[in-house]
Design a binder for these strands. Structure first.
Length: 530
RNA sequence: GCCCCGUUCGUCUAGCGGUCAGGACGCGGCCCUCUCAAGGCUGAAACAGGAGUUCAAUUCUCCUACGGGGCACCA
């Protein structure tokens, strides 16, 4: 089934929400959107969905630009570069949403809802008690226009879509055909929040239309809300775009990819020395595959080749597990394909453009004995995961203490200690040594362990060694993305009850092998007879 | 709980009624080799289960199971 392309030019978009780190899922969806646009001579738009005032930050927005550019996903129109259909930041489009909401109010396709949060909670509770689907009960749906207008003056309210009751809605999905929904399953979605800002559903439909988006290629998590979007297009009298819902990237346990179980921040990959072309190549293998003219599977390809080949209809819908091992292999393939000069240039550029060196130099200066010695001390700042051998024993918080009275945590307690550390360091705050130190001290106190012991556990987890420059400055240099990924990695290791035993067994095996190598060779029977 | 989507080696996938079910990562073995990688060769490894349609089902239909997603004044 070919993807319908009736309108020209093709216009697609990626619409991240600037809440937290730039996400690898954004790059994944961005890649397919960009490639689709390019392969049809169309445009790729970046829109910032910052209607959640509480969580959106400008800092996160900047990080998204930086990371998407790094990855090589350059947009044709966006908040930072403008374009004919702007503004591209939803927080700057409030008037547009207000006008369109008024249109729906006037036409009777939307209505004001004065229900309080308390009432909504109660309704939901009752529905749950009766084992019904929790949905809005339509309490305000039939208020008279007069009452609605009168109360609107003083009472806080939201505006809801009057979703058709009865019948069904068919979502034509370009990847899976017609998906049918019973309208009774769908409730009256809030379109405008009481703060006067639109919800995703309204903003997304209005913007997609005004920005002349022809194909909405987005993650599968949106499939179930598409009937509401279709209802909005209908209420406005607009022609809906073509929808294609991509499978969700998964963790190893098949759940939706999450930072708990995978590095999801694009900054992580950049700072871990992953080549952007390798990352895109890898993402292009998720749910998709290609063959060469001879029918052989092709694993390695450039963005241009991906674009030339792209056929959305070939996307496989099973959720692909994001496998770092294969990414590593691909990255190595790219590195090996370079000439030595190219490799040197890339390494040099990677380091020259990296802000870690200025601070790392400061930390390492007192410890280096030569220029070449530098990376012995600073190398850990420029890698992804670190390997732990015998040092894994420090993960049992307290294992480093020489004081007999010191508290030592067992494995589950240590795991909780690390989880706590992750939680406090995740907090949206400036990534400074002061912030890190304060938070880590707090959790040591909470856990009732000596700060030296707690810090040692974190040091080994994040830097790989029990000796390092001052911890907090080091973590600052390492950066939030790498620090958290290493802490999460260790938490994952600690979650395995057998991990430490296995690490110990590995070490013992190594020692045994070394010992065996030291033994004089036993004379062979032949030798002794001779 | 309700709704929706999905299900081929551990993982990414090819397959679109008749195949020894192919490739890739990872894993094992062998070769190459001063080490380690890389590279070459090679091995183990999958159609979730059950009905039906058909001369023939991995492929089509239905049911079940399992996985995922959604059911917010978050996106």
């Amino acid at each position: 089934m070919p993807i319908p392309v009736t309108k020209h030019p093709v216009r697609v978009r990626v619409a991240p929400s600037p809440t937290g780190d730039p996400h690898v899922g954004t790059a994944y969806i961005g890649l397919f959107n960009l490639a689709f646009a390019r392969s049809h001579g169309g445009q790729f738009v970046l829109r910032i969905e910052d209607t959640d005032q509480k969580r959106s930050t400008r800092q996160s927005e900047e990080a998204i630009y930086k990371s998407l550019r790094w990855a090589g996903l350059q947009w044709d129109e966006g908040p930072d570069i403008g374009g004919p259909r702007g503004p591209y930041r939803q927080s700057e489009r409030s008037d547009i949403y207000r006008q369109h909401t008024q249109l729906l109010l006037d036409s009777g396709d939307a209505y004001r809802c004065f229900c309080t949060a308390e009432r909504m909670d109660k309704v939901r509770e009752e529905q749950r008690a009766r084992k019904e689907t929790a949905r809005y009960d339509g309490f305000c749906r039939h208020l008279s226009p007069e009452e609605s207008d009168a109360r609107a003056v003083a009472e806080p309210h939201v505006i809801r879509l009057k979703f058709p009751q009865g019948g069904e809605t068919v979502v034509p999905d370009a990847l899976r055909g017609a998906v049918v929904y019973d309208n009774s399953q769908i409730d009256d979605q809030v379109l405008m929040k009481s703060d006067g800002l639109p919800t995703y559903h309204l903003a997304n439909v209005v913007d997609d239309h005004l920005m002349a988006i022809t194909h909405v290629i987005r993650a599968e998590e949106w499939l179930n809300s598409t009937p509401k979007h279709l209802a909005l297009y209908a209420a406005f009298g607009w022609e809906p775009p073509v929808f294609a819902h991509m499978p969700l990237l998964r963790n190893a346990d098949k759940s939706k990819i999450s930072k708990r179980k995978n590095p999801t921040s694009l900054e992580y990959y950049q700072r871990a020395g992953v080549l952007p072309e390798a990352l895109l190549n890898f993402l292009g293998l998720m749910g998709y595959s290609r063959k060469d003219a001879a029918g052989q599977d092709v694993e390695k390809f450039t963005l241009d080749e991906f674009i030339a080949d792209l056929d959305l209809a070939r996307i496989s819908l099973g959720g692909p597990v994001f496998d770092l091992q294969k990414l590593d292999w691909l990255n190595g393939l790219y590195l090996r394909a370079m000439t030595p000069e190219q490799l040197a240039d890339r390494v040099t550029a990677f380091h020259r453009e990296d802000d870690r060196h200025a601070a790392a130099g400061h930390l390492v200066q007192e410890r280096v004995t030569s220029l070449g010695d530098y990376f012995d001390h600073a190398g850990t700042f420029f890698r992804g995961a670190v390997e732990y051998g015998l040092t894994a024993r420090y993960f049992l918080v307290g294992a480093s203490s020489r004081k007999k009275t010191a508290v030592r945590l067992d494995r589950p307690q240590s795991l909780r200690f690390f989880e706590r550390a992750i939680a406090v360091l995740e907090e949206q705050a400036a990534w400074t040594p002061e912030f890190i130190e304060t938070r880590l001290r707090d959790i040591c106190t909470e856990a009732n362990v000596a700060v030296g012991d707690g810090f040692m556990a974190v040091r080994v987890a994040c830097l790989g060694r029990p000796t390092s420059p001052p911890l907090f400055e080091s973590l600052q240099v390492l950066g939030r993305a790498l620090t958290l990924s290493r802490l999460r990695h260790v938490a994952g290791l600690l979650a395995d009850a057998q991990f430490l035993q296995r690490a110990l067994a590995d070490v013992e095996a190594e020692v045994a092998a070394a010992r065996a190598a030291l033994q004089p060779p036993t004379p062979t029977p032949e030798a002794s007879h001779a």
